[in-house]
Amino acid sequence: MTRLTGTVYLIDDDNSMRDSLARMLRDIGYSIQDFESATSFLQNSLPVAPAVIVLDMQMPDVSGLDLMERLDKLGRKTPIVFLSGQSHPQQIVKGLKKGALDFLFKPFNINELLQAIDQALDYDHKQLKRNLKDGEIKRNFSSLTPREKEVCTLLVEGLMNKEIAERLGTTDATIKVHKARVMEKMQAHSLQDLVKFYLESNLA
């Protein structure tokens, strides 16, 4: 099986478990950053993508769920796969609600871990692409003049050229020119594209 390339942040206070997992995952071909605590991870990790955090749920300094909440506040959206030595239903439900991609219970099957890592890396790769596209759309929108932004918004609302002209107190021909510039600057090949870009990137 061809595996996705990416970084695995391995966080576990069990030194022997962490060392053996880190060695195995490096041998497979992943880039590994390993940490003995959540605090060490927060202080020393280098944000990269695509990546996955393989995180022990129960740690003495900062728990896995606490780290998850801190990362969310920091805006770090790296997907998380939790490892747990015992079942804590409430914690599992809370973690899943906050966006954890998977939970594995020790001792776990190594193939299950590899599958979870690959799924998380695939998710983060797609997330990275979405973020890059979103940034491009927002830059394109910022390049519009104030009047072009007005026209763009009214096009997204479903108004026809004539209706937009009446709304803005100008001519149909002028709106056609603005519309053409909007479509070009937004790199939209159709009105459907324009609406999709506008809504998905929350340009309102």
Rank of each mutant, 00 (worst) to 15 (best):
P47K: 10
P47V: 15
P47D: 03
V48Q: 08
V48A: 05
V48L: 15
A49Y: 12
A49K: 13
P50I: 14
V52W: 06
V52F: 05
I53M: 06
V54E: 09
L55A: 01
L55H: 01
L55M: 06
D56I: 02
D56R: 03
Q58H: 15
Q58S: 10
Q58A: 08
M59N: 03
M59P: 00
P60H: 00
P60V: 04
P60E: 00
D61G: 08
D61T: 10
D61C: 11
D61A: 12
V62C: 09
V62W: 02
V62A: 01
S63E: 01
S63T: 12
S63R: 01
S63K: 00
L65E: 04
D66E: 14
D66H: 08
L67N: 02
L67H: 01
L67F: 09
M68R: 03
M68C: 12
E69Q: 14
E69L: 11
E69S: 14
E69A: 14
R70V: 11
R70Q: 15
L71M: 13
D72F: 15
K73S: 11
L74W: 11
L74F: 14
G75L: 14
G75I: 13
G75R: 11
R76V: 15
R76P: 03
T78L: 11
T78E: 04
T78N: 05
P79G: 10
I80A: 06
V81L: 06
F82N: 04
F82Y: 15
F82V: 03
F82W: 08
F82G: 01
F82E: 07
